[in-house]
Amino acid sequence: MKTAEEIFNQLKEKFGSSIIELRTDKPVESFIVINPLEIDKICSFLHDENDLLFDSLMNLSGVDDANGTKEKDEKGLETIKGGTLSVYYHIESTKLKHKLTLKTSTPREKPEVVSVTEVWKGADWHEREAYDMYGIVFLNHPDLRRILMPYDWEFGYPLRKDYKNPEFYQGMKVPY
């Protein structure tokens, strides 16, 4: 059993500046913020190290932080410029019975995070879903396609805060 703080110190020692910070100020369990382009290396370490052994990725989810500037175009449609999209990883060691939350943020205009499918096979569909709903691109993913929306959906990513539904999809009216 290790606490998030102990794991943070261990990671900080090993990876230095890739580990950004430990957040304990939120009303949820504390989490470690990580550089999006080095998440695979860090996860691989968390998975393999003898006193960590995080063998299970319980969940991987995308989040639209909506922390950019809101702009209205000439039609009055609101879009968000700048800011970040985030990915949260909830991992667990079934052997050592400890859990950890990781967070990584990536710029909204070019959202890129390295895939962790090499570490946990189960990340495959989770990452496809995050890509489908938020447009977060997972580098080195073996099969990054939409998973829930139709493959030919060209109207954006539905769970982004500034998403607007189209009027029609394949001749079918979309609004109520």
């Binding site: 539905p158 998403y163 079918m172 009216k173 609004p175 109520y176």
Partner: peptide, 20 residues
Amino acid sequence: NCGGPYWEHGYHVLKGVDRV
């Protein structure tokens, strides 16, 4: 019949099968 609970925010739901 009409989209049900997805009538407003269901980005993926057809609002009634009578549209097809």
